[in-house]
């Protein structure tokens, strides 16, 4: 059974994965992170949380009369892909599963599929 600490090993086994992190969206805390060189987990968790908040705020203003519930966020840069999947939990603001993917070695469709499978195992 997957736990919060063991799910990152699964995420890192996605082809092309460079870093992975599990973020508590409410507090902006890095719950777990893969040991990557030169990444400050606390600061990057906080920054990603802000990016998510800004996105959902922006979307809720641009789609009036509709609920906005972000499922997944994909950002493509010149070097690779950043994939964030939001996991709603029953009791506290969502968890976010983040993975940074290499542009050349990754398959985006596969990565999304795997990330969804992992998140379904993690929470009911």
């Amino acid at each position: 059974m997957l736990g919060l600490d063991t799910c990152l090993a699964e995420v890192m086994s996605i082809p092309g994965a460079l870093d992975a992190m599990l973020i508590d969206h409410t507090s902006g805390m890095a719950v777990a992170f893969s040991t990557a060189s030169g990444v400050d987990a606390d600061r990057s968790a906080e920054a990603l949380t802000e990016a998510l908040r800004a996105t959902s705020d922006g979307l809720s203003r641009s789609s009036p009369g509709d609920y906005v519930r972000v499922d997944e966020m994909l950002i493509t840069t010149d070097k690779g892909h950043h994939l964030l999947r939001l996991l709603d939990t029953a009791f506290e603001g969502p968890l976010a599963l983040y993975v940074r993917l290499d542009m050349e070695r990754s398959n985006l469709a596969l990565a999304r599929h795997r990330l969804q499978a992992i998140s379904n195992q993690l929470l009911t």
């Binding site: 059974m1 997957l2 919060l4 993690l122 009911t124």
Partner: peptide
């Protein structure tokens, strides 16, 4: 009724 992930998350949240 609860997954390991959820149980861990509840404990994590409560302790912090």
């Amino acid at each position: 009724c609860v997954t390991r992930g959820e149980l861990q998350y509840a404990v994590l949240g409560a302790v912090l």
